[in-house]
Amino acid sequence: MSIQYFNEEHEQLRRLVRRFVESEIKPYADEWEKARMVPREVIRKMGELGFFGIRVPERFGGADMNVLGWVVLAEELGRSTFAGVTGVATIHSIMAAPHLLHAGTEAQLEKYMPGIVTGEILTAIAVSEADAGSDVGAIRTRAVRSERGWVLNGSKFYISNGVNADVYFVAARTDSTAKGANGISMFIVEKGTPGFRVGQQLEKMGYHSNDTAELIFEDCVIPHENLLGVEGKGFYAVMKNFQNERLVLTASNVGEAMTALKMTIDYVRERKTFGLPLIERQTISHRLAMLHARAEAGRQLVYHAASLLAKGEQAVREVSMCKAYWGELVNEVMYTCLQFHGGFGYLREGKIERMARDARLCSIGGGATEIMLDEIAKRWDDVPYWM
């Protein structure tokens, strides 16, 4: 008997997202890639359909679903083949906004959350710096309390949604004597705040429709009440939400990989060499069959990890396994699928070329594969079937 991870509410969401992908993303997203952004009206349409309120309480316009709803959203958006579009939506609603939901005061929640759910407010999470990516404890941006408010100085790098966001959740060091993970706090910074500006828009290998930028803070004064959560505990808030970020990224990888495999199987059924369809070449059919098997195993691992989080378990080991596994597998899938598309796969007009470029981020963003393997290795003594 198969394990049922999803209920009817999840499946209704899946059908809704799938229809949206077919009618509102696939016909237009090539233009968004060229423009290096997703139009705001598209973001608002996602909000109207409830994509940004999946885990938000009903009083703010959300559906109050569990984490499996996020998995459904990411997987189905991943099937669009446009990872940049997936990135805009998931970074806003799953990687950035939960910081407000988990730690915001009632006043902060009432001010921002309804607009976040509808897509009127676009958010970004600003933690990474040029010399501090996975190592959150190495950040250098500083925030000093003054009579006027908190004064921020420093810069952030690799910030997705960085150009077009309206509200940023910014990590800064508030205790100059603390080392590493200690003394980091989170702040709410609105676009247009004096002393805050968007620096260069960063050109990337992939994810072109997901704008990415440098952020610069020069004596940026924000109100005292814009402290988000407990002073000095921002590192732990970031690490807590990393579980969501990593799981959702792998869920989008599931959709991307399965779609790439289906596209490639369809292609090799039609493409002939020396009088035979490529699918009849055993070396090709066997390689695709093994990748399909590995992708299916990885899909089940993602669903299992999500089910553990839905039960309230930490599941750091399982989520780290998902991230390490899929960060490497999605790249292997795209490499192989491009190879079997031959010269056509190398052309910009083909989907698989873009998908291969997008996939390269997946073993880096949200925690590099090597970091994830370290997280798994720390927990070998917790493996239940070894005990």
Rank of each mutant, 00 (worst) to 15 (best):
M321W: 11
L202Y: 09
N182G: 10
G345T: 14
F242K: 14
V319S: 00
V21H: 07
T174Q: 05
C362L: 09
A89P: 09
Y112L: 09
R379K: 12
N253T: 02
F242P: 02
E120I: 06
I376L: 03
Y207A: 14
R15Q: 15
L347Q: 13
E370Q: 13
Q339S: 12
R79I: 09
N210C: 15
A324H: 05
R55S: 06
I94V: 11
M355K: 02
A260E: 01
S320I: 00
F51N: 08
E33W: 10
A74H: 12
A130G: 04
P57C: 05
L338Q: 03
E31F: 12
A103G: 06
N210T: 11
D374Q: 10
V333L: 07
W32R: 12
V333Q: 03
G365W: 08
V167G: 05
G192M: 01
D381L: 15
V117T: 02
K240G: 10
W70K: 10
Y207C: 09
A103F: 01
V248D: 04
C337Q: 09
M387C: 12
V71P: 04
L227F: 04
K262Y: 05
A324S: 13
E8K: 15
G78L: 02
E296F: 00
E190Q: 10
F52G: 00
E214N: 06
A257T: 00
T177E: 11
M290C: 13
A356P: 10
V88D: 14
N164R: 14
V383N: 06
R269Y: 10
R36F: 12
W70A: 09
Q4L: 13
V170Y: 01
R145G: 06
G206W: 04
T273F: 13
L291C: 00
